[in-house]
Computed example of a mutant assay.
Amino acid sequence: MIRRTLAVGSVALTGVALVVGAVSNVAGAEGDGVALALVALGAVLGTAIVAGASYLYRSDVATVHTARIAGWNLLGVALLAVILALARLAPGVSIPAYVVVDVLGVSSVAHLLIGYNDVRRIRAEELARQRRTLAVVNRLTRHNLRNRTQILTGHAAALAEELDDDDQRAAAETIRATAAELSDVDGELAAIQTALNGDRPTGTVDLADLVEDVLAPYRDRYPNGEFAIDVPDGLAVRGDEQLQVTLDHLVENAVEHGSTSSRPGADDAVEHGSTSPASQAQQDAVEHGSDGDPYVRVSAGLDGEIARIHVTDRGPGVPADEVAVLTEQREISQLEHGSGLGLWVVKTVAERYGGDLSVENDEDGATVSVGVPAA
């Protein structure tokens, strides 16, 4: 903190010195419009530098980079001050003080901009290195995750077939179900990595047709469920294959959590991958239809140049802590975080498209909305 204060203070001191220098020359410039304009320019430059120092102190620029910007400022002012001082000592050379203030002010502003751009370049290189490292870690993590979950799934399946005890068989099925959920994480991580590394899509997609394609397998799987579509015909959006992944995540989330909302404890069973006899019966009820039949409504409309896609269910809603983290109202912590990566995939893809994600809970269920550019 001290180092940051000293660095920013040197920049602010430069601005204050320029303001004082300009004001001290007002009397000598009276009656000369050009001279007064130059005096005013020096005061404006000094004020701008002080304001820039205040912004720099509050910004997220690292302290080491703040010191670098201050160094550029001091370099520009010191070198030019020496040159002007030597020039004024030369025989026959007369440079008004307010001109010296203006020249030093312009130099200071120019070197502050040079320093800021230099810091941005360094930061961009750091981010590029971090991104390359994260990409390698991502690939290794996904590779190891796939291998380990395949081993777990295979051994759990073998145990479930061999064990006679119902409780032991249920435990083996729980292991297998949990391993299957872990294997899904691989695909979610891959989708997030693709979105982070990708550019905004340039192709167009017919939204109504895309929603029909996404809902088709769910209608086959849940013949007694209700899947409503309210998307205007001909509504086209900018998108690629990741838009279908995004919508599939939203519909899957609505089916998984919305269809079990009327069953006490069912959400916990689904979230934690439980396949105890009771929870298995609940899931079977969903599969074959009952009061837990899924309800999903996909609607869309234009909001200026953004098409907003809404996926609504009749579940208990997205937990408030998860909504706060997703909407960046609260930082993620060890104790407060989301239960899965599905909505993070949606958020990452939406932001890659230049859109956004919002969540609305009410007494009837939850609506997750995604904004994507209209074509």
Rank of each mutant, 00 (worst) to 15 (best):
V286P: 09
R200W: 03
H337Q: 15
P373D: 08
A374D: 10
G21H: 05
R58A: 14
V103C: 13
A281S: 14
E351M: 03
V345A: 05
A128R: 14
Y222F: 15
T204N: 13
D186A: 09
S59E: 07
D60W: 04
E30F: 07
W72S: 11
V370H: 07
V318I: 12
T348M: 11
V359Y: 11
E188N: 09
A27H: 07
D364Y: 03
D267H: 10
D313E: 03
L74N: 13
V251M: 04
L140E: 12
L13F: 13
S274D: 13
T204F: 07
L163H: 08
E328K: 10
T260A: 15
R330H: 11
N253S: 14
A87D: 02
R58N: 09
S108K: 07
S261F: 06
E256Y: 02
V325S: 07
S369F: 08
A266T: 02
V39G: 06
A374W: 13
G31P: 05
R88T: 12
A157F: 03
V16P: 06
L38Q: 13
G225T: 03
E125M: 15
E241F: 09
V64S: 13
T174H: 08
I229K: 03
A12T: 02
S290P: 02
L45A: 07
V39F: 06
N144C: 09
V205F: 02
L38A: 08
D233V: 10
I49V: 15
V270I: 12
R238P: 08
T367G: 12
A7S: 11
A179E: 04
L6Y: 05
G355M: 05
R263D: 13
V34D: 08
N361I: 03
A29C: 10
L145H: 01
T5K: 12
P232V: 02
R121V: 05
Q329D: 15
V50N: 05
A216F: 04
A172G: 09
T66A: 14
D199C: 06
V26C: 05
V255F: 05
D240Q: 10
L56D: 01
R58M: 12
L84E: 06
V205E: 03
I192F: 01
D164V: 12
A157V: 08
N144S: 06
A172C: 07
E287S: 11
R200F: 03
